[in-house]
């Protein structure tokens, strides 16, 4: 029998449980972990679009995720705009990634220059 390392949730039996959701860690299943994360503060969106980038230093294109904090103080998911504005013709951002960099592309949406904070996560999974 193949050896496994299993850590189950409280009340679940690590020896007999079969649902992957019953485990905190199971050596038969890949875990999603964070290779790198960071925050870019006070980035000026002074062009439309304006692109910021971070070199990820990996030999492949990783799965990434990011959030942006707009001047109104609310944090947005990719492709969302600032909460306290009309949803059409507003600020937006998207996340792109290739084999070298993670890119954060911000749009002014006709609102002029503004400042954002960006949080990003780079995971151990490749695209």
């Amino acid at each position: 029998m193949a050896q496994q390392i299993r850590v189950s949730k409280l009340t679940k039996d690590a020896l007999t449980a079969t649902d992957p959701n019953d485990f905190i860690l199971h050596s038969a299943y890949n875990s999603f972990f964070i290779l790198a994360s960071g925050v870019l503060t006070s980035q000026s969106v002074d062009a439309d679009p304006k692109t910021f980038s971070v070199a990820h230093g990996l030999s492949y294109t990783p799965l990434v995720f990011a959030f942006a904090k707009y001047p109104d103080g609310y944090v947005s998911l990719p492709w969302e705009g600032q909460r306290t504005s009309t949803m059409l013709y507003t600020r937006r951002f998207l996340v792109q990634v290739d084999g070298t960099n993670v890119y954060f592309v911000f749009y002014q949406g006709g609102t002029g220059t503004y400042s954002v904070d960006i949080a990003y996560y780079i995971f151990n999974s490749s695209l």
Partner: peptide
Amino acid sequence: TDARNKIFDSSYETL
């Protein structure tokens, strides 16, 4: 050294 080949590594944070 390639994180894609790891199930778990305590060097890295998880969600």
